[in-house]
Design a protein around this nucleic acid. Structure first.
Lengths: 140, 140
DNA sequence: TCTTGACCTCAAGTGAACTTCAAGTCGTAT
DNA sequence: ATACGACTTGAAGTTCACTTGAGGTCAAGA
């Protein structure tokens, strides 16, 4: 009755229908049924999509996100994994903050070449050696 | 004399040689010369690579990063662009902070299903509708 | 009833950032 | 002097997250 067709889910979630079908192909979402050929979704799919978007924003890839769902599609989030991800975000945020500060000071810097700008060199050194790389979101 | 061969640059920068050649093919770095066929690098390439790594961490793609270099390989950074990127980083940081806080509160949440957890729903809503997506680094 | 157009499937294409491969070159140690 | 192994090239392959395209189906409105 209050089920949603794909166009509705697309417009409400902001994701194109092709992405919804793609997510379905990965087992991330599931229509409740079909109307003819057409997918019908339970409104809760919007929360699920929110969770996926959230996970992507947090730097999870779709495979990792899939691990957050039990077979029934209910979120089943491992608290440890979650806290771990939050820790990673902390690191990322710190690093990005440093980068941002560095960018601003380089923008202000008057040294003839940035390679002679102390704050620039400090920034580069910090950014390069301070962290190990880990997977990040991609947003096309 | 104190020039570095590719293996040395690779080990010091943490980037594989193939990536260094790839960056060279994009015009991001330049060997000072060759020893036979072998690339020799000026030590300053490490700073350049630091800048590239930094830019990637800040969410720039390689094309954008290239714009930060003049023809001579000296960083030649458009202050406006730089400040603009810093502003974008501010947004990113805010969003990631919200996500991190959300993750932590979901981890603490006792609701039987996350879909019944108010903070989770708030988080999802915020994450979904609050930002427009922009390009981010990819780190394999 | 017929037309329309939004949906369907499956395969292939895209773009970014690399990585791998095959075949060849050459500096260095023995 | 010769062998070894680290380097070279250019092209092709890989991964991720989608997007596009061709050709087909079908619910709903005129």
């Amino acid at each position: 009755m209050s089920d949603l067709d794909i166009a509705r889910v697309a417009s409400q979630s902001g994701l194109p229908a092709s992405t919804l079908r793609y997510y379905e192909s990965l087992g991330l979402i599931h229509p409740v049924g079909r109307h003819g050929l057409r997918r019908q979704y339970h409104p809760s799919v919007l929360q699920t999509l929110g969770l996926i978007t959230l996970g992507r924003a947090a730097g999870l890839n779709l495979a990792e996100i899939k691990l957050m769902f039990a077979a029934d599609g209910q979120p089943q989030i491992d608290r440890e994994r979650l806290n771990h991800k939050a820790d990673e975000l902390d690191e990322t945020i710190l690093r990005l903050s440093a980068v941002r500060d560095g960018l601003r000071s380089v923008a202000r810097c008057e040294a003839p070449s940035h390679l002679e700008c102390p704050s620039f060199l400090r920034l580069i050194t910090a950014a390069t050696y301070q962290h190990k790389r880990k997977s990040q979101p991609r947003r096309p």
